[in-house]
């Protein structure tokens, strides 16, 4: 299934995935909003890595689930902090 080992989107996806994970683990202004926005960066990195394996249905599912989880996080933050 994998035609070649290191396509450019695979390498750049892994780079974005690691950097985004570290940024989401240590958010710079330490609040939930910064952490939520930083959490979207490794999502796009993971999408680039999944693009390497040529599966269209996986990409559809991942995008939809990512948006749904963002909505759930936003609702949880509104309940917890009373903002918005």
């Amino acid at each position: 299934m994998t035609a070649e080992l290191y396509t450019p989107e695979f390498v750049i996806g892994l780079l974005v995935l690691f950097a985004g994970t570290i940024a989401a683990a240590f958010p710079r202004p330490k609040n939930y909003l910064t952490q939520l926005i930083n959490l979207e960066i490794p999502g796009w990195g993971l999408l680039l890595v999944m693009l390497h394996y040529n599966e269209a249905l996986a990409l559809f599912t991942f995008a939809a689930v990512s948006v749904l989880s963002t909505y759930i996080f936003v609702r949880v933050m509104q309940k917890k902090e009373g903002i918005g």
Binding site: E40, L51, A56, A63, V67, Y71, V74, I83
Partner: peptide, 25 residues
Amino acid sequence: RGFLDVAIAIALIAPLSTIFTLMVC
């Protein structure tokens, strides 16, 4: 890569994530 349908779906879905995040901004 040739995934035009995936591109359409992601282009329409990705702004929703930003709009949901803007609800707490």
